[in-house]
């Protein structure tokens, strides 16, 4: 089976992109396709604790992130430089591996297909 890496670069409040990137991953997981997600740039905000999506009349994405492991998607990565630039940390209940910029290149090479959203 060909594997796929989703690079998720948008904050959860900037429009439908964060959710639609996650939906590609969940759909792939449902078909047992080897999937991974790399959160980078503003995408790292999706991993932050204490979000109040309802104040923006939005649905909270964090529940969908917790569902990833139920769909067999355990390979979650976050760009260390994007976290540092924004001074944020991923929520502790989520197991996300931090990768340096040079490791990102290796990561992209490891997967057959890549989608950046």
């Amino acid at each position: 089976m060909k594997s796929m890496l989703i690079i998720s670069r948008q904050s959860p409040w900037s429009g439908p992109t964060a959710r639609e990137a996650l939906d590609i991953a969940l759909a792939g997981g449902a078909f047992d396709i080897p999937m991974a997600i790399l959160f980078m740039d503003d995408g790292v905000f999706q991993l932050c604790a204490g979000q109040h999506a309802a104040t923006l009349q939005q649905k909270d994405l964090t529940a969908n992130l917790q569902a990833l492991s139920l769909f067999g998607i355990d390979d979650l990565y976050v760009a260390q430089s994007s976290l540092a630039a924004r001074a944020v940390q991923p929520v502790e209940t989520l197991s996300v591996k931090r990768v340096s910029d040079s490791e990102i290149a290796t990561l992209i090479n490891r997967y057959d297909h890549t989608i950046t959203l």
Partner: peptide
């Protein structure tokens, strides 16, 4: 149709190309 069609196509293809991502 559903997103499964995207994954099915990606499985069949030698090259999977996306236009207009962010």
């Amino acid at each position: 149709s559903g997103l499964g069609q995207l994954h099915e196509a990606a499985q069949q293809a030698d090259r999977f190309i996306a236009f207009g991502g962010s």
